[in-house]
Nucleic acid binder design. Structure first.
Lengths: 189, 189
DNA sequence: ACCTGAACACCGTTCAAGT
DNA sequence: ACCTGAACACCGTTCAAGT
């Protein structure tokens, strides 16, 4: 909040940064230099203040990392909501992960504990297409199967775990096709 | 290597620790206190030396973390090799992950770059059952689909991403059953 | 009110000195 | 040869002082 003080002749002192700018800079640094490179000092430098000033807007590095994860999850959820089929949603997740690999990994890391609300919101799109495919009784299990596969594929891909050659696009489409078919077939309709 | 010096009257000075002990202590600390708790000082204290002494056996913390990941991967591979069906292998992976959650996560983290040999060896068991299920032409894609699903499920489970209630065992078996059925059906036999 | 330099604790790493 | 204390750079965090 802008304020008034006697040293500026009563003029409000404009803030030199903002929480939004800090989180944005932290996300950029995370992608460029990894989690180890995301230091209070590197973020402070990026937004043009000294490290102690960040504590006016953020409780500490852990909270900043959590805010980065939350912002990433919100964006990821918005992308998923655009997809209308299981394939479209899965493709959207994968595209987002390629654009923000470090953020994507952070979001699904065990150290990151996102709020129940954020996780629920993120689950909604997949739960919707899973219900269409498997029917309401198996919707939760089907959604978990789709989520597990997509996240697992993307995680292996980002970690370089798929290094036996072959065509990754082919493997992605193979998995997607077989998974959707199996879930649909299992629904008995 | 034990050695001789003039201060001990020519007696060999027994080493006070070993690489094996260091890596073992590091794995315990990783599970107990997380990656942030795995410091050179905590490991040194656990094996009964001072931090600088660790540099006689390990090039630095990054290498120690890599050695931890490698040892974990070797154990994980040995467990997977015991399984004869896709279900047995997947169950073995999941059980191992529950026993070593932090190590499991480390192994599949993008920051961990395991050698080609280790990744290839770890892939072998799944590739074998995938070949049985899908035939040689689709084996690689089928293996990647199984690996992605199992790793993804376990990763979500460890990260607390499956928090909408429901029965996780049911979801695991649902995914396993449908996946195996779909891959078998897709093989045309 | 916001920002900063100084200070402190802690960690990774190096190295000369001890045995 | 192995081990250690001392030292240095770096990071997170606090706080009194500056504007």
């Amino acid at each position: 909040m802008a304020t008034v003080n006697s040293y500026t002749g009563g003029m409000p002192t404009p803030d030199r940064t903002s929480l939004q700018q800090i989180v944005g800079a932290a996300r950029d640094i995370l992608e460029r230099d990894g989690l180890a490179g995301l230091t209070m000092q590197s973020v402070a430098e990026a937004v043009g203040v000294r490290a102690p000033s960040l504590y006016k807007r953020v409780n500490g590095r852990d909270e900043l990392v959590r805010l980065v994860a939350e912002a990433t999850m919100v964006e990821l959820t918005a992308r998923a909501e655009q997809g209308r089929t299981a394939a479209e949603i899965a493709d959207a997740l994968r595209k987002f992960a390629h654009e923000h690999p470090a953020g994507y990994h952070l979001v699904f890391s065990p150290e990151t504990r996102l709020s129940f609300e954020l996780v629920t919101a993120a689950s909604a799109p997949i739960l919707r297409v899973a219900t269409e495919l498997a029917g309401p009784d198996d919707a939760l299990e089907a959604a978990r199967t789709l989520t597990a596969w997509a996240n697992g594929f993307i995680g292996m891909e980002l970690a370089g775990g798929f290094n036996l050659g072959g065509d990754l696009e082919l493997a992605w489409n193979y998995g997607l096709t077989h998974l959707v078919a199996a879930i649909r077939a299992g629904s008995g309709r």
